[in-house]
Every structure is written in C-alpha cells, then in structure tokens.
Design a protein around this nucleic acid. Sequence first.
RNA 1: CGGGAAGUAGCGCAGCUUGGUUAGCGCGCAGCGUUCGGGACGCUGAGGCCGCGGGUUCGAAUCCCGCCUUCCCGACCA
Length: 469
Amino acid sequence: MAKPPILTPQADDFPRWYQDVVAKAELADNGPVRGTMVIRPYAYALWERMQADLDRRIKATGTQNAYFPLFIPMSFLTKEAEHVEGFSPELAVVTHGGGKELEEPVVVRPTSETVINSYFSKWIQSYRDLPLLINQWANVVRWEMRPRLFLRTTEFLWQEGHTAHATEEDARAFTIRILNEVYERFMVDILAIPVLLGRKTNRERFAGATNTYTCEAMMGDGKALQMGTSHELGQNFSKAFDTLYLDSSGEQVHVWQTSWGVSTRMVGGLIMCHGDDNGLRVPPALAAVQVVVIVVRDEEGAGDKARALCAELVALGIRAEIDDRVETSFGRRSVDWELKGVPIRIEVGPRDLANGIVTVVRRDSGDKTPVAIADVATMLPGELSSAQDALLTEATKRRDERTIDVTTVEDATEAAKVGFARIPWSTLGEEGETRLGGQGVSVRCLQSADGSLPGPSETDLVAVVARAY
RNA sequence: CGGGAAGUAGCGCAGCUUGGUUAGCGCGCAGCGUUCGGGACGCUGAGGCCGCGGGUUCGAAUCCCGCCUUCCCGACCA
C-alpha cells in the first residue's frame, strides 16, 4: 500500500493543506503530466457549471451577452488616467503584427472598460437607449509578478459586465443588484461559500472606479479571497470616451456606468474553502457529477444492478455516473472520486448485495451508511441537500469563529494571523490602513456596523481586515 | 530590481565534498502472472546531449570560468 510521494510545488509558507489539495489533484498519483490531464478538464468542468448558473442569473437582470476584441489600442487605455496608471505594470503589449512593427502598440485586454466604451459611445444616442446592459465571457491577461495556481494566473477566464445608465442612482442600484442577486446568491447557494459584502477603501478601489463593492470569503486557513467585485464607474469613462446621450429635455449628458466581474479564481476559492486532506469537496449544487455508482467487483450481477441504479438516479434528475472500470482497483477508483470531490459515492458489490444493500458514502463527512438498494433513490435527494447545507454551515462556522472585534491596529494585526478582524473605520483610518499594509494585512472591505452594505454617505463604518491572497 | 536555492529519464530526487566500471533510486509507463470491499504484489522491459559553452585532466555529472533557465522570499496583485 505504498503511497506515492505528495509533491509540493509551492512555497513552504503557502498553506500546507492547500498544497496537498492542489498537489494531489494536479499530480493525482502518477506525476504531473497525467495528473494534470485529470484535473485540468475537471477544473474546467467546474468552471462550466459555474458559468452556466451565473449566465442564467445575469440574464435574469436583463443583461445581454456580447463579445468585444481581445486587442485594445494602447491609446484607449491612456484616456482614463487612473485606469492606465493602475493597469500599466501588468499589461501584455503587442508591438509587432504581420511581420511589421505596429504604429501603435495594442495591449491584450486586462479588462474591457475602454474598448467597450469605444463602442458604447457610438451606440448610445438617446435616453431611450438606456440602460444598456452588456456582459461578456472572455479571457483576460494580467502580467502579475507572482502567479498563484487557480488564484492569480496570468491568463484567466471571467465574465465582465458593463452597463450604462441615465443617472447615478440607477447605476448604483444596478451595481448593488448584481452584488446581491447574482454574486452573493450564487456564492452562498451554489458554491456554499459565505461571503462578506462591503465597500473597498480608496486604496483598494478599482482603477478608474468611483466606488467598488466586493464579496470577500474566508479560506480554510483564515486568509481572505476577493471572490467578486462590482464597481460604480461614475462618469469617469463616459467623460474619457465622450459617451453621451440626449435626455428628455434635449440636453447632452454623460452616462453613468458600472462594471462587475467574477473569474476562474472562484475555482481556487472553492478548493481552498472546502478542500480537505483528501482532495476537493464540491457542493452538490455545483458538482458536475453529484453521485458516482461504483461497481466494487462485477460478480453476482453487481455490474447490472449498479447500472440499473445509476439509470434510476439519472431519471430522477440526479447527475449520476457509473464507474464499472473493475479492471482498476477499487481503492484507486475510490480515491480518484474523492480527489475530485464528488459529493456522494454508492458502492455496489457482491458482499453487500447478498443482503440487498449498498453502501452510501458522503464526501463531506466521510460517513458510510448501508442502505437497502430499493431505498437509495428516495433517500438521495435529501442526502444531496444535506451535503450542500453541511458545507455552507461548516464554512460559516469557521468564518464566524475566526472573526473578532478589535479596537487597535496591533490587535488587528494579531487577529489577522488566523482570521478576520473588525475595527471601527474611524479608529483605523487611512493612516492605520498603511500601518496594517506594512504587516501584510489589508482592509478587505468597509461595512455598516451590523455587517450590511453601507450606503454612499454612511459614516459609522467598520473595517474588516485580514491577510489576503 | 534586491535576497536565496536549484538545473541528472515523463515526474520527484540521489550521486558531486575526495574525478575512475555500463550514471542510480522511487513513482509513472509497457508485457506476463497473481490479485481486487480503500491508493495491490512479483518478475521482465522501454526510457538519459547529467541546462549550455569553454577550461583543467590520461579521464569530468563530479574540479575551475562564463552564460542561460527555473523556482522561492520581498516589491506587485485596481
């Protein structure tokens, strides 16, 4: 039973358990080549599931999908001063095309506010054209100095929403609507990851925005991960790109805009929030495979009974899959499904079948339950929903236990070693934020005292501070 | 750009200090057999510009010089 070595491609202080989760997943047990062959498509399958669900929610807000160019002329970016300043260090710039040096370099989009505004300025003429609600699914490139597997990759996939509104109130309301109706609901209900909603400080705000809202989650090691953002852009881009509309009184007015996005970073967040020493734990609502029916050995008709059971589950609308690869050892197959985090495994073998039962195994808890084969189909929907709840409950409990209220920068720094600290913003201030920054701690978001999203002019704010990825 | 480490089989590594048979080990891979209720075992086998270039030497993975690359820490991550 010699286990293969678990390789650790990350730094020593990178959370050990995450190394193991990712390394086991990436390397499976036969080296990175075949391991990657297994995990890459699987991680992508998870992303596709996220994408499908999010796309439905986004369209429900009246937003349409479109697609815009990958290459953006450098001059577009320089039109908005803060925007270009924020993104310059991480741009991939194309200087040659068709064998010739380009007159003007183009950048590979790090985000698409500028190129989309160049279209918006042509499309939008009248207040009757507003609001204009557009989303695109795309890849973007940010040349970060230190990429992190799944969390901060040079190229990543995301959705970026871009909207134009007649008024500031309209734009602000839409920013918050996306945050609440799309992002929070998706992360909590589907990913089973509890998130804090709040506003970013000036220092952490998106380059070019007037206000940034964020969803912040706590990972298994107590560090924070920004899972998604929704920005009020004000009129910054519409002024830079002359995106004007004629209002009902016949006046030319700049539109008010928003942008918002979530990315494949959520795959990393999922791993780090729910993963354990045995691999991923994928919540049933997300899982591409919710239930796997494993044929232990194809004797006494176990194979046929397993296939029949699987078909029965599929007919019930459960995403079930059969594993009858009996030429591969049972232990190997069990571990494979465990690594992938499949929520429920059903082991069908001759020994149990002799007594008319199968074994139902929960990935979240590891619990194994013998169940009469005739009862499996009726009990499974309940098991799946219970597994979903358990993951959310566990993550919420951890977050709440590791969040404490403090009143000094010193205490905040100390608390951030293991979790989140809440400190009055009036106590901390930008000067305190700088001091925290020196300790590797950042203000993740500003909230109202009761933890809700603060209004635009609200003053009695609390800063949630933590170490972050 | 500063500080540190490493380049040897698909992957992870040993060998180098003290130069000397045919460069090893684990995993993975291929074949055969025995296994199979939690990462099976045995036997056989395939697979190497030892990062690149130069030097010292009868002889270099090993010693010397130069170069290249990668990784880690910091700066970056709206």
